[in-house]
Design a protein around this nucleic acid. Structure first.
Lengths: 151, 151
DNA sequence: TTGACAGTTGCAACTCATTCGCATTTGCAT
DNA sequence: ATGCAAATGCGAATGAGTTGCAACTGTCAA
């Protein structure tokens, strides 16, 4: 575990909590998992598996891609991270941390912005209820393009 | 072209129009494409490619799965059908016919219901606009479960 | 009708993202 | 320290969909 002993950044404080939580869930905290957790916590974009693998290799040089995939699945089922399957792209991941939100994908750049609308959520619930359903979860993605100022 | 000569069902009237439209778009109307068009027009569910292949085989026995995939892509880019990629499932298709709508997927049965909410669409546009974007297209899926009457 | 030829087809081989089997290694409770 | 189930790395396998290519076939002009 190179370069980092006592001084713990706020980023890592959250990880320490998670580490403990995972251990209690009977999930071993291996070097590769710790690496992925820190990489995920540090990410403010929405990286896909190969990208996370690349980033994790800095901390754990030989880490294999299958381990990355396996760990991502594990973390997802632990509710630690979320998997997003945007159109025509490999799955991308993000830590749950903040609450629920939806996504806006810039079709030009691939950038992902987050947003949340209580009003929409409420309408969704109403629509489902009207048909006798309750929402288990939902997915809303806006594929957008930057508006070029009025020519 | 077996079993069907003069009497044309209302289902096929729409297809005849399409046939002409495609021809004009420089797209040959082959037996396999005609078959897929009629199968799609007749479908009121949201079939995936292998299922469409199965159904099309009634009309064109030897049709290959690759042709089905290729044709679906062609029809999609012609705006004749829409492709939907729901969670953890192969793509499913539906004719465009009616206007835009969103989907509700019963997580228990896999059934797909359609719905549409102008209010939500409006809110989406507002949200995008606030951030300086315009919506190219969007995707909204509600994964739902039937509400069991109050126990 | 007949050609001609570009668009299509069927097949098999391929891609890409992700998963799996298995022998080896390793957290971690004791 | 020690045991052992859980996790890893490797490579092979999967599933959905795509693609190269030779043979075929709509379609349009003659």
């Amino acid at each position: 575990m190179p370069a980092q002993n006592d001084a713990m950044s706020e980023t890592h404080a959250g990880i320490e909590n998670l580490t403990e939580a995972l251990r209690e869930a009977g999930i071993r905290v291996t070097r590769q998992r710790a690496a992925l957790l820190s990489v995920l916590a540090a990410a403010d974009d929405h990286p896909d598996a190969p990208e996370l693998h690349r980033r994790a290799e800095n901390e754990v040089p030989g880490i294999s891609l299958s381990t990355v995939y396996r760990t991502l699945s594990t973390l997802e089922s632990q509710g630690v991270i979320q998997r997003h399957q945007f159109e025509g792209a490999p799955a991308r991941f993000e830590p749950v941390e903040a609450g629920h939100h939806d996504h806006m994908i810039d079709v030009e750049t691939g950038n992902v912005l987050e947003f949340c609308s209580d009003r929409i959520e409420k309408l969704q619930a109403e629509i489902a209820a009207e048909l006798g359903y309750e929402i288990v979860h939902h997915r809303m993605e806006l594929y957008v393009r930057k508006v070029t100022g009025p020519a």
